[in-house]
C-alpha cells in the first residue's frame, strides 16, 4: 500500500508531465484536454472542501461554477463591445484582464455561497442536498430567460482574456495558469485541513453532538467552509469559461453539480488529490469511450457503478488501502 503523500506528488507530477509530452510530440489537443481536467479538478477541489472537510453534500455547486463563468462572460462581453456595465448609478467598464475577472468571480461566488449557506445550513442530510439543488435550479432557469446575456444561447467571447506576461492563446501557457491555480487551491485545502479550523470541522462532521457539547459552534465554521468552497469553484468557473471562450446556462445545470460529485467520489472523498485523479480519469474516459462507441454512457455508468460498489474510498482508497472519511 502506498502512502497518500506519495500519491499526491505522483499525481501532480503526472498531471504536469502529460501536457509537456503532448507539447513535444505536437498534440495540442491533448493539452486542451489536460486543461479541461485541471479546471474541472479545481472546481471539484472547491466542492471537496465543503464535502470532505465540512461533510456538506452540495448538489448545487454549479451555482458558483456558473457565477464564475458569467462573471468572466459579462465583463469580457462588455469589454469586447465597448459598452460599460450599468449598475444603477454605478458604471463599470468591461475588462479582458484575467486577474480582475478572477477576483470578481471569487467575490461574487463567495457572496452567493454566503447567502445560500446561511439559508441552507438550517437543514441537514438529504434536505441539504435538495435545498442546494433548488438554488441551482433557480439560477439555471433565471439564466435561460435572461436575454440580455444570451439566455440559453449563452455568450461567446471571441478571444481569450489576457494575463500579464502570459500569452493565454498558446494552449500550454493557458494550461500553466490553470495548473498553478489548481496547485494553489490544493495548498489552501491542505493548510485548512491541518488548521484548528479543519480539526474542529472534522470533529463537527463526525460527532456533531459532542462538538457542540464542548462549546464549539460548528455552524459558523461550516458556513466559512461553504464560502471558501464556493469561491474556489467560482474561480474554476471563470477559467472554464475562458477555456471554452463561451458561457451558457449549462454551467448552472444540476447535471454539472452531479458531475463534480462524481469526480470527487471516483478519486476519493476528502482526499487532497481525489478530485485531481477523478477529473483526469473522467476526462480520459469521456474522450476515449466516445471514440469507441456511440453508446459510451453505458460503459461510463458501469465503471462508476463498479467504483461505488467495490472501491469505497475511490481510486486513492484502493491505492492506500484505506477508506476515506464517511460523509
Amino acid at each position: 500500500m502506498i502512502r497518500e503523500g506519495y500519491i499526491n506528488a505522483i499525481v501532480l507530477f503526472g498531471f504536469l508531465l502529460i501536457p509537456i509530452c503532448a507539447l513535444i510530440i505536437e498534440e495540442p489537443y491533448t493539452i486542451t484536454l489536460a486543461t479541461r481536467a485541471a479546471v474541472l479538478a479545481l472546481a471539484a477541489v472547491g466542492l471537496n472542501i465543503a464535502l470532505g472537510i465540512g461533510g456538506l453534500v452540495s448538489l448545487g455547486h454549479a451555482v458558483f461554477f456558473g457565477l464564475g463563468g458569467y462573471a468572466m462572460g459579462i465583463l469580457a462581453f462588455h469589454a469586447q463591445n465597448y459598452i460599460p456595465v450599468e449598475l444603477g448609478p454605478l458604471t463599470i467598464n468591461g475588462t479582458k484582464s484575467m486577474p480582475i475577472i478572477w477576483l470578481t468571480a471569487v467575490l461574487v461566488s463567495a457572496f452567493a455561497a454566503l447567502i445560500i449557506g446561511l439559508l441552507s445550513l438550517r437543514t441537514t442530510g438529504v434536505y441539504f442536498i435538495m435545498i442546494t439543488l433548488a438554488f441551482g435550479q433557480m439560477f439555471f432557469f433565471f439564466s435561460i430567460s435572461w436575454s440580455a446575456y444570451g439566455g440559453e444561447d449563452g455568450l461567446s467571447i471571441y478571444v481569450r482574456n489576457v494575463f500579464p506576461g502570459v500569452n493565454t492563446l498558446v494552449p500550454i501557457q493557458f494550461f500553466g495558469l490553470c495548473f498553478t491555480a489548481l496547485c494553489v487551491a490544493l495548498f489552501v485545502q491542505s493548510r485548512l485541513r491541518a488548521s484548528i479550523f479543519g480539526l474542529v470541522l472534522n470533529s463537527a462532521r463526525q460527532t456533531p453532538v459532542r462538538a457542540e457539547t464542548v462549546g464549539l459552534n460548528p455552524m459558523r465554521l461550516k458556513l466559512l467552509a461553504f464560502v471558501i468552497s464556493g469561491a474556489i469553484t467560482g474561480l474554476a468557473g471563470a477559467l472554464f469559461a475562458d477555456l471554452n471562450r463561451f458561457v451558457s446556462p449549462t454551467m448552472f445545470s444540476w447535471q454539472l453539480s452531479g458531475e463534480l460529485i462524481v469526480l470527487i467520489i471516483i478519486g476519493g472523498v476528502g482526499r487532497l488529490a481525489g478530485p485531481v485523479i477523478g477529473s483526469a480519469l473522467f476526462v480520459t474516459l469521456e474522450h476515449f469511450l466516445g471514440e469507441f462507441t456511440d453508446f459510451w454512457h453505458i460503459w461510463l455508468g458501469l465503471i462508476l457503478l463498479l467504483i461505488v460498489l467495490f472501491a469505497r474510498g475511490g481510486i486513492i482508497g484502493i491505492l492506500t488501502g484505506k477508506d476515506g472519511p464517511h460523509v
Partner: peptide, 9 residues
C-alpha cells in the same frame, strides 16, 4: 453520497 453516485450511474 455513494447512493447518489450509484443511482446517477
Amino acid at each position: 453520497l455513494d447512493q447518489v453516485l450509484a443511482t446517477f450511474a
